[in-house]
Structures are given as C-alpha cells and as structure tokens.
C-alpha cells in the first residue's frame, strides 16, 4: 500500500517538475519558430531594382534538378516590352513542390541569382495541382504571417 503511494507520488513529482520547466514545443499556429535566413523552403523568382525579372530562362536549374521538379520554357521578349533584363526571358516557370527535395541546387546553379529558396515552408494544399507553383506565384514570394 505504502509502496503504491510512493510510486504515485514519484510519478506526480516528475509531472509537477516538468510543469515549470521551459517548453520545447510551440503552440503552432499561434506561435511560430524563427528560422535561419539560410533555411531552404519554397522557391521565389527575384526581380532587379528596375522591376525586371532576373530569370532569363536558361534552364540550368531544370538541368541540375535531381528530382526533375522544375520546368522552364524560354521566349524572346519584344524589344519595346522587356520582361527580364535581356531579350530572353522565361515565359513559363514551374516548380513541382511535391517533387522538390529542397536541395537548393537550382539556387546554386542559377547564373543570374534569380531563383532563390525562401525560408517559407508552410506548404500544404488540398490537391496536387495546387502544389505546382507557377511563375506568377513564384514572382510574389509568400511571407509568413
């Protein structure tokens, strides 16, 4: 009997001790963790100071991607309506975020520093289609609330 009470007291002691200790978990989504700026999350396509896209559609990211998650189609922009800083630009740029393994090799391969991996990692959707990020989406990088 006494042994039983002892055991319960010991167990509860551990419980009460843990109540006052600092927490390892976060009450997500009310509170969110701070990530390193180098964290490799969702991609973005950057623009230069004039608002021109940096991406020229060279396709090196597509070539280097080990998961075949990227598809690039380049096109020539009319000289009076430049899209990127040169006459070549990517008319289509898609990243399949389900295939992506976030290795960051696209970022490393990019000769114009256009594709960058942001720390944004809240990737969830109701269907697979929605997980393919198109160019529009990548040009407006998502920001964590």
């Amino acid at each position: 009997m006494l042994d039983g009470i002892k055991a319960i007291a010991k167990g509860l002691g551990t419980t009460f001790k843990a109540l006052t200790e600092p927490r390892d978990t976060y009450p997500y989504p009310e509170k969110r963790r701070e990530y390193s700026p180098r964290y490799r999350g969702k991609h973005m396509l950057a623009k230069d100071a004039d608002g021109h896209e940096l991406c020229v559609g060279c396709g090196l990211c597509e070539a280097v991607c080990p998961a075949h998650a990227i598809r690039v189609v380049a096109a020539e922009a009319p000289s009076d309506k430049p899209v990127s800083w040169t006459n070549r630009y990517s008319i289509d740029y898609e990243v399949d975020l389900i295939r992506c393994i976030f290795c960051g090799m696209c970022e490393e391969a990019c000769p114009t520093n256009a594709v960058r991996l942001t720390p944004f990692n809240e990737l969830a959707a109701y269907d697979r289609e929605a997980m393919i990020a198109d160019k529009e989406e990548l040009l407006r990088p998502a920001i964590r609330k």
Partner: peptide, 9 residues
Amino acid sequence: YHHKARPWN
C-alpha cells in the same frame, strides 16, 4: 529556334 530550347531538354 531562337530561345526555344536547350541541349538538355
């Protein structure tokens, strides 16, 4: 072929 494709795709 201008700006159409690259040798790897």
